[in-house]
Design a protein around this nucleic acid. Structure first.
Lengths: 215, 215
DNA sequence: GTCTATATCCTGATAGAC
DNA sequence: GTCTATCAGGATATAGAC
């Protein structure tokens, strides 16, 4: 019988879980089958090989993930509002899917073409058109209007993403070093948002006295 | 014959390369043997099992890596100097060993106890004693002296590390999205240092007018 | 479509000569 | 210490009954 709990979908869900947790090499078809409530033979009936199952599971997961994430950089209102919503959005989504990010950095670095292709396709052009130019324009206008210092928008983007991502990416390490923190806790997440915003907003907004450090 | 090119050391070097590249599950004893210029049997002669080889190779590599990295947070001079040297050090070392970081975030997240133990041991206490308290004190004094705003030192540390690490950790993704940049290039690295420092220093230094955003 | 049983291949590990 | 040859276990993939 088919429907919302169709076997094919249940397999993809299970496959995603296992691949994200163990990686492509560490994943076992047996475990995927078990989590989907079926046996190995049926895996190969639906998806020819491990390779093919990997490709399909990954494509589905990453497409969803990035489509959502990319919305975070759509500009809204003035610079301060935009910055705040960017950070809020990014952190909220990342804190809910830390495995995806960890998996991505690993698998792409290991030379996996699947993840690379999926990403390139999503980021370069989606329904609303390429999104980086939009982000870039927002900052260029802010700089031209004198609202913020003349920072490099691209590097600022790297800095923002890096700050937002780090604690979730390195959560297992952090909890080993600082037993008192828990990056999945709501209180910590809100504090994190506030600290990032304060640092960045103070760091980029134009000063009244005009004592700029840049040379 | 033994000496600088001793077989045991050559094996550890090769093992490190392969483990960092492919992960524990993806690594093949055959490949390690080949890169060390020997055969599989000799691997098991020197190191009983894959597990044991993994443990020793990892311990050696991570110990070296962290011992060097940890020196980055030793305070030196005033706040501005300290901040600049921290960023310089961190980025220089990370740009030279991006695989180590990528490997770490992955392997620890996959529940590997080896990496976790090694890290905990190194960061908590080494020759010079625990280093986080030292870092924390440096900022507390800076805040008390009115040199910088009352930021949370721990979150600032997370932000700094995140900003420094990101471009190297995500290098394969970034080059896929922005073909024009190359995170391993010297010019890019120096620009990155400067952008991070400017952002953070403007973000934390006490303002003359005292128009603080914090509530 | 779903199962059990089996084939095939690969990998970590060992035996034993030199 | 280093090699060749081989074993034993486990993984993907397939055959064939229902």
């Amino acid at each position: 019988m088919n429907g919302p709990g169709a076997t094919g979908e249940r397999i993809l869900d299970a496959a995603c879980e296992v691949f994200l947790e163990k990686g492509k090499a560490g994943a076992r078809m047996q475990e995927i089958a078990a989590r989907a409530g079926i046996n190995k033979a049926l895996l190969h009936y639906y998806f020819r090989s491990k390779e093919e199952l990997y490709r399909q599971a990954l494509t589905r997961e990453l497409t969803t993930f990035f489509r959502e994430l990319v919305e975070s950089v759509r500009p809204a209102g003035d610079m301060e509002t935009f910055l705040r919503s960017f950070i809020d959005n990014y952190i909220d989504r990342l804190s809910r899917n830390p495995q995806v990010v960890r998996f991505l950095t690993w698998e792409i670095g290991s030379g996996g073409p699947v993840a690379r292709n999926v990403i390139a396709g999503i980021v370069q052009g989606n329904e609303g058109g390429p999104i980086y130019p939009v982000y870039r324009e927002t900052f260029s206008r802010g700089i031209a209007a004198g609202a913020i210092r003349p920072v490099d928008p691209q590097h600022l983007l790297f800095s923002l993403v890096g700050m937002c991502i780090f604690v979730f990416l390195a959560a297992p390490i952090l909890t080993a070093v600082f037993p008192e923190i828990d990056p999945s806790e709501k209180e910590f997440i809100e504090k994190r948002k506030k600290e990032i915003f304060d640092l960045v907003w103070n760091g980029i907004k134009a000063e009244k006295g005009g004592n700029d450090v840049r040379d």
